[in-house]
Design a protein around this nucleic acid. Structure first.
Lengths: 210, 210
DNA sequence: AAGAGTTTGTGAACGTGGGAACAAACTGAA
DNA sequence: TTCAGTTTGTTCCCACGTTCACAAACTCTT
């Protein structure tokens, strides 16, 4: 379920505030969702709450972590060390949550050997060896759109079965491989769409209505 | 509709390939969706196709651009020029699609004056003046989670009504303000979740099934 | 001009997900 | 123990989005 990470974040901030127990109502508002939805989501994982009391924050946090798979170690490769890849390599949110970047790869051999986030940028050709050596299951694509599909293909053939794609391109991958797409400019476009409609709705704008 | 930007991307790549006309089937596969869904989406914008022929790529591209609001100029401010803010400022996908970064703001005064993407980093206190001067409607938050809510509050009071939030924090904003959340580590967590379930389903793993 | 072949736009069925509401279960006081 | 108060887990219902399937509309050949 895509909301589990949100709940986990909320639980972590409750824990930071030294709150040991919480109701579904509290957790739901902290996570920005409906309390019924939260309870239904949590009930899918098991019965980890106590009626009349609520949820034990620490216990629930562990259970969700385990459900997501954060109790194990996830080695990650990042391909395409441009501006975005650079930022991702340095992003502390990854390493602090069980994800370990084991290699930075780039097709441009002029960048090879450059130090980013304490790691040397290596050649894309080393992908197979790295995946085998570290047991990498997750790959991140931060290349230009034109190279994304080819990178994805080689990731798949190297054995990677989950891809996080930041390149603005639709990837086609075989059955059983997961792709999650994060398109930064799409997000802005969606905001612009709503913003435009808000502006149009304001008084003073001439508009023809049937 | 959140798929419009995807269609727009697909149309752009068709245009790059000098394809002047396309059927809903072709466009749908290029965008990675069902053709019926695509037709229904497009029909909400108007009747821009021709039965028996398909869609004129250039014409449809313009219509979708207009619908999203990309025919007008969208000034954007980015707050929080760390690794991610740096990457966003340099990201060409923004400027090439009608979005114009007019200012980079950061709370850390040691960074003020630093040149990023050809712009000087300015003080967060200048937010109000910049929003008024350029008519900024969209703000991007790339700060740590702890500062995100306070930045959002000041953006709202400055007149910004659409926020793209990269900080891993739930933002509460008044009615009428849109927030889109992009949480990079959540995306990885969702992949890990599915990956874990895939691994569990492989033979060789002992698992108790009812 | 007429008919065969395409392709859009849409009506209708289907499935999924969200929310309200309630029963089950727990706590604490009397 | 019993009863009032609280909170979870779950059931039921509704609404939305997705998909199938088909009629309307266009092109092109004969």
């Amino acid at each position: 379920m895509a909301r589990l990470p949100v709940y986990l974040r909320a639980l972590n901030s409750l824990l930071d505030a030294d709150i040991a127990t919480c109701s579904s109502e509290e957790l739901a508002t902290a996570a920005g969702v409906n309390s019924a939805k939260l309870r239904k989501d949590l009930s899918h994982l098991g019965s980890y709450g106590t009626r009349g009391v609520g949820y034990d924050v620490e216990y629930l946090r562990y259970q969700i972590s385990r459900e997501i798979g954060l109790t194990q170690d996830w080695p990650v490769v990042i391909v395409g060390i441009g501006n975005l890849g650079h930022a991702l390599a340095n992003y502390s949110g990854f390493s602090s949550r069980g994800f370990r970047t084991v290699a930075l790869l780039d097709a441009d051999n002029r960048r090879h050997g450059d130090l980013v986030a304490g790691m040397k940028i290596r050649s894309f050709g080393e992908l197979n060896a790295i995946v085998r050596e570290h047991g990498v299951a997750i790959g991140v694509i931060a290349t230009p759109a034109a190279s994304a599909q080819s990178v994805a293909d080689q990731m798949v053939s190297a054995g990677i079965r989950s891809i996080l794609n930041f390149a603005p391109a639709v990837l086609s991958v075989p059955e059983g491989v997961d792709v999650r797409m994060v398109d930064l400019s799409s997000e802005l476009q969606i905001l612009a769409y709503h913003e435009q409609r808000k502006s149009a709705a304001r008084p003073g704008d001439a508009e023809v209505v049937a």
